[in-house]
Simulated assay, not measured.
Amino acid sequence: MRFSTLLLPFAAAPLALAAPEPNPVAPRAPASTGGLLSELPGILDGVQELLSKDTINNLEVIVSGAAKLLSSDNIDILQDILNNAHTLLTKDFVDNTTTLIGDATPLVEDVSKLLGGVLGSL
């Protein structure tokens, strides 16, 4: 017997281990537990309602208005407004304004009654 005939099975063994025969049967798909896939038809119906022609037109108006508002010319102005509002709207200012409005409410009601009486007598 030749020496090469004895070594041939040993030489082929690593190749057989490196490339095993593929499994012809795929694993079973997991069972559906409901979740998002079972809700998909309802979601698609809702999206279809949201994407009506009127909604898309309204979104175009909103986006174009926001683009004008957030133009490069307005960014500095808007930043100034926000900075001033942040400086002005302190807790003390809000508390004092709330108190002032609460104190002025009865006065406004009395003036309203007085004007109603004056106009009624004319």
Rank of each mutant, 00 (worst) to 15 (best):
N83Y: 12
G35I: 01
T98D: 00
L36I: 06
K113R: 12
P22L: 08
G35S: 04
A66T: 03
L119V: 13
L50E: 12
L36N: 07
A13S: 07
N84C: 06
I56R: 05
G120Q: 13
A11K: 05
L40R: 05
L100R: 15
G65S: 13
G42I: 00
E21L: 14
N58D: 13
F3M: 05
G42S: 10
V118Q: 10
D73P: 05
L17N: 12
D103A: 15
L44A: 01
E109F: 05
G35H: 02
L107P: 05
S71I: 04
A85Q: 12
I75D: 03
R28A: 12
G46F: 09
A66V: 06
L7K: 00
F10Q: 08
F93W: 10
G65V: 02
A19N: 13
I101M: 14
D80Q: 15
L15I: 01
G120A: 14
I101Q: 10
T55P: 06
V118R: 10
L6Y: 09
T105S: 12
S32V: 01
G120V: 07
E60H: 11
L40H: 00
I75S: 02
D73M: 03
P20W: 09
V111C: 09
V25N: 03
N57M: 01
P24T: 04
S64G: 07
G117E: 15
T90Y: 05
S52Y: 02
I101R: 11
A19L: 13
P41A: 06
N84I: 08
N96M: 02
K113A: 14
D110P: 04
N58I: 00
Q48K: 15
D45F: 05
A66K: 04
Q79S: 13
A104Q: 15
E21I: 15
D103N: 15
P30R: 03
S64W: 04
A67G: 04
P24V: 03
A13L: 12
L114K: 15
L70A: 06
L100P: 05
V108M: 14
L100G: 13
T5K: 01
Q79A: 14
A11D: 00
S38R: 11
L7H: 02
D45A: 13
N84A: 12
N83R: 15
E109H: 08
S71D: 10
F93L: 12
V25S: 01
A16E: 09
R28H: 06
T99E: 12
V94A: 14
A66S: 08
D76G: 05
E109P: 02
V63H: 04
I56N: 00
F3D: 09
T87F: 07
L115A: 14
E60M: 11
S64A: 08
T98G: 11
A13N: 00
G120R: 05
T55K: 09
L40A: 14
R2I: 07
T97E: 07
P24N: 03
T90N: 04
L100F: 11
A29Y: 01
L119Q: 14
D110V: 10
P9W: 01
I43G: 02
D45R: 14
L88W: 03
T5N: 10
D95G: 01
A11T: 09
L70G: 02
I75E: 06
L36D: 08
D103L: 14
P22A: 10
T55D: 03
D80M: 11
A13M: 10
P20K: 11
